[in-house]
Amino acid sequence: QKEELKEKAKEAVKRGNKDKARELLKRAGISEEEAKKIIKKIE
Results as ranks from 00 to 15, higher is better:
Leu5Gln: 03
Leu25Lys: 01
Glu7Thr: 07
Glu3Leu: 09
Arg15Ala: 14
Lys20Asn: 05
Ile38Ser: 01
Lys20Cys: 13
Ile42Leu: 12
Glu34Val: 06
Lys6Met: 15
Lys14Ala: 09
Glu7Arg: 13
Lys18Trp: 14
Glu11Val: 07
Lys37Ala: 13
Gly16Glu: 02
Lys41Thr: 11
Val13Ala: 07
Lys40Leu: 14
Ser31Glu: 06
Ala12Thr: 03
Glu32Gln: 06
Glu3Gly: 07
Glu33Ile: 07
Leu24Asp: 03
Gly29Pro: 00
Glu33Cys: 08
Glu43Trp: 11
Ile39Ala: 01
Leu5Gly: 01
Lys20Trp: 15
Lys2Leu: 15
Ala28Thr: 03
Ala21Thr: 01
Ala21Leu: 05
Ile42Gln: 04
Lys18Phe: 15
Ser31Phe: 03
Asn17Met: 12
Asp19Leu: 11
Val13Met: 11
Lys6Glu: 10
Glu32Ile: 07
Ile42Pro: 01
Lys14Pro: 02
Lys36Thr: 14
Asp19Ser: 09
Glu32Met: 07
Lys18Leu: 15
Glu32Gly: 06
Asn17Ser: 05
Arg15Trp: 07
Ile38Gln: 02
Ser31Asn: 07
Arg15Asp: 10
Ser31Trp: 03
Arg27Asp: 08
Glu4Thr: 10
Arg27Pro: 00
Ile39Met: 06
Arg22Ser: 06
Ala21His: 01
Arg27Glu: 12
Glu23Cys: 14
Asp19Gly: 08
Glu7His: 07
Ala12Cys: 11
Gly29Thr: 00
Lys14Tyr: 12
Lys41Val: 10
Lys14Asn: 07
Glu34Asp: 09
Glu23Thr: 05
Glu11Lys: 06
Lys20Tyr: 14
Lys10Ala: 11
Leu5Ala: 10
Lys40Glu: 15
Glu11Leu: 10
Lys41Asp: 14
Lys8Arg: 13
Glu23Arg: 09
Arg15Asn: 13
Arg27Thr: 05
Ile39Pro: 00
Leu5Trp: 10
Ala21Glu: 01
Leu25Phe: 07
Lys18Val: 14
Ala12Tyr: 13
Ala9Lys: 00
Lys14Ile: 11
Asp19Met: 13
Ala28Trp: 05
Lys8Ile: 07
Ile30Gly: 00
Asn17Gln: 12
Lys6Ser: 06
Glu34Gln: 06
Ala35Leu: 06
Arg27Phe: 05
Glu4Pro: 03
Ala35Glu: 01
Gly16Leu: 04
Lys6Gln: 10
Ala35Asp: 00
Glu33Val: 07
Glu3Val: 06
Glu11Arg: 08
Glu23Tyr: 05
Ala35Ile: 15
Glu23Pro: 00
Ala28Leu: 08
Arg27Leu: 13
Ala12Trp: 13
Lys41Ala: 14
Arg15Leu: 12
Asn17Ala: 08
Lys8Thr: 04
Ile30Asn: 02
Lys8Ala: 13
Ala9Glu: 01
Lys36Tyr: 13
Lys37Met: 13
Glu7Pro: 02
Asp19Cys: 13
Lys26Val: 12
Glu34Arg: 05
Lys2Gly: 08
Glu23Phe: 04
Lys10Phe: 11
Ile39Gly: 00
Ser31Gly: 08
Arg15Val: 08
Gly16Lys: 03
Ala35Ser: 06
Asp19Lys: 12
Val13Gln: 02
Lys6Ala: 09
Lys26Trp: 06
Lys37Arg: 13
Glu3Cys: 10
Lys40Thr: 11
Lys26Asn: 06
Lys6Thr: 11
Ala9Asp: 02
Leu25Asn: 01
Ala21Val: 03
Ala12Arg: 02
Ile42Lys: 03
Ile30Thr: 02
Gly16Ala: 03
Ile42Gly: 03
Lys41Pro: 02
Glu7Asp: 07
Gln1Pro: 09
Lys40His: 14
Glu4Gln: 10
Arg27Val: 04
Leu24Phe: 08
Ser31Thr: 09
Glu3Gln: 09
Leu5Thr: 03
Lys36Leu: 15
Leu24His: 02
Glu4Gly: 08
Glu11Cys: 13
Lys18Ile: 15
Lys36Cys: 12
Lys36Phe: 11
Glu7Gln: 11
Ala35His: 01
Glu43Phe: 09
Ala9Val: 15
Val13His: 03
Asn17Leu: 12
Ser31Tyr: 03
Val13Thr: 03
Arg15Cys: 13
Gly16Thr: 02
Lys26Gln: 10
Lys8Trp: 10
Lys10Ile: 14
Glu23Asn: 05
Lys2His: 11
Ala35Gln: 04
Arg15Pro: 00
Ile38Gly: 00
Ile30Trp: 12
Glu4Ile: 13
Glu32Ser: 07
Lys26Ser: 08
Ala12Gly: 01
Glu32Phe: 07
Lys26Leu: 15
Lys6Cys: 14
Ala35Met: 08
Ala21Pro: 00
Ile38Tyr: 11
Gln1Asn: 13
Glu3Trp: 10
Arg22Phe: 15
